[in-house]
Design a protein around this nucleic acid. Structure first.
Lengths: 254, 254
DNA sequence: ACAAAAAGTTAGTCATACCTAAAATACATC
DNA sequence: GATGTATTTTAGGTATGACTAACTTTTTGT
């Protein structure tokens, strides 16, 4: 929410590349950037100077390149747009991974914030809504024939209804115990019920960890200390204390 | 399917603007283009020269601007991308018209063909599938609370099931008469059953008027001669003979 | 018909974003 | 520690795409 500067598509690409190279290796060499973006070496030098002027990278001639705080923030923002688009293409539009990735790469620079948020919300809605869940999304692609496959449609909806009823019965029995975020296994998803005040840093709230939000647990470190999650497209790393204050409802059983 | 040339985003904007201005008035003056795109007059002159070099516009100094055949094709392509995006944002993502339009304007230059087709297919799927119809899309936006609103979800699906069953009963009774395209009222939608060979020009087939395709009737001229339709984002104008050869199933009652 | 206004073009500038060729620097190895 | 190679930068070039200022052509009003 702090960055507002207007970066060109090209500079965003450089930032993104630098971020990824740094994530893989320790620091980025101009050569690596050039190879990744398929541009010549002098082009990289030029871009680095522009980025340095905007205080987004730490750059001195003949030295390794790192991102400044501002630069990392901007890079994460680009990457978030990229990932949100890619995931939407893959999960909702049933596009193949690599095709989706290339498309996201092209479109990530021009998508307005409002639309991005809607992409996220829509993907979540599809995931959560029993009427439009994963089964439904799977049905997209073989558009059932309007009249001949009417029976399929009926079966499809009837089954969805059955599942909701079953889940309701189970829910009534099990009384849904209070679950902590740390109890969600990696890859699992859950919905936030409550975030204990005080324990959560404002950063977490800002990124969208609020009651009602959907969380995907990405990785839990051995001792449960850094818990990596994804919320609204943002990757977050939570300390144990922070995670302990978050009550959730598991969402796996869909 | 004939155009392949790589046009810059800027030149696409110019083509789009020229097309729209010509549609409103008879021909485009550089001044109109400049006002519409909010650029200076010399910028327009420069762009027109580039477009003329690419044989996309007919341009001579101090003369009015018109599009060549190739230019009109390219312009329609840009506009199709724009409209597909906008409609998806409005109809599927529930974004407001003007916001959607602005977003489409930005993104129309970078969307790959594959993704565009998926946007169209997805919007059609949502429209046709009884499980994910207009009622379902309307539900997007107030993501029902996971556990508390379980009852709503159940009701929603049960209602959808009821509607499918009802439609099935009606369908069985009414025996679905053979409907001609010309009998669909403006604004109505239908699905193509059969396209009489010979009568249909290859242009129509190429644009996607094939059995199974969804058609939206846009306008029917007084004597039923030019029938304007939209298929897969393409605007087509059909002659009476062409339209007569197209059997459809109406899709209004959803 | 002709002067004023409007529209359009030319000329020259600037910034981005690429490129190639050549020079400078860093490193790696003997 | 010298030297060769790989990396990086500088220098200089091209194309797009925008701008302002100044000039030319067309249109319009009297």
């Amino acid at each position: 929410m702090t960055t507002a500067e207007t970066l060109t598509a090209s500079l965003e690409d450089y930032l993104e590349a630098i971020f990824h190279i740094i994530a893989e290796k320790r620091a980025a060499r101009p050569k690596d950037i050039a190879r990744r973006l398929k541009v010549s070496n002098p082009s990289v030098t030029g871009a680095l100077r522009l980025l340095a002027k905007k205080k987004l990278v730490n750059y001195a001639p003949y030295d390794l390149v790192t991102l400044t705080g501002k630069g990392e923030e901007a890079a994460r923002d680009v990457i978030r747009r990229h990932e949100v688009l890619r995931d939407f293409f893959v999960k909702v539009l049933a596009v193949e991974q690599d095709v989706a990735d290339k498309a996201a790469c092209k479109m990530e620079h021009s998508i307005p914030g409002v639309i991005l948020e809607r992409f996220i919300q829509f993907a979540e809605f599809v995931e959560v809504c029993p009427r439009g869940g994963s089964k439904w999304i799977a049905g997209f692609g073989y558009h059932c024939d309007y009249d001949s496959a009417m029976e399929n449609c009926e079966k499809c909806i009837a089954q969805a209804l059955e599942e909701v009823k079953k889940k309701k019965r189970q829910g009534g029995k099990k009384k849904m115990p209070v679950t902590k975020l740390k109890d969600i296994p990696p890859g699992g998803k859950c919905k936030v019920n409550r975030v204990a005040a005080g324990k959560a840093s404002s950063r977490i709230i800002e990124m969208g960890v609020v009651p009602g939000a959907l969380i995907e647990v990405e990785k839990i470190a051995p001792l449960g200390d850094p818990i990596d999650i994804k919320v609204k497209g943002y990757h977050l790393s939570l300390r144990k204390e922070e995670a302990d204050g978050i009550d959730v409802t598991p969402l796996n059983a869909r």
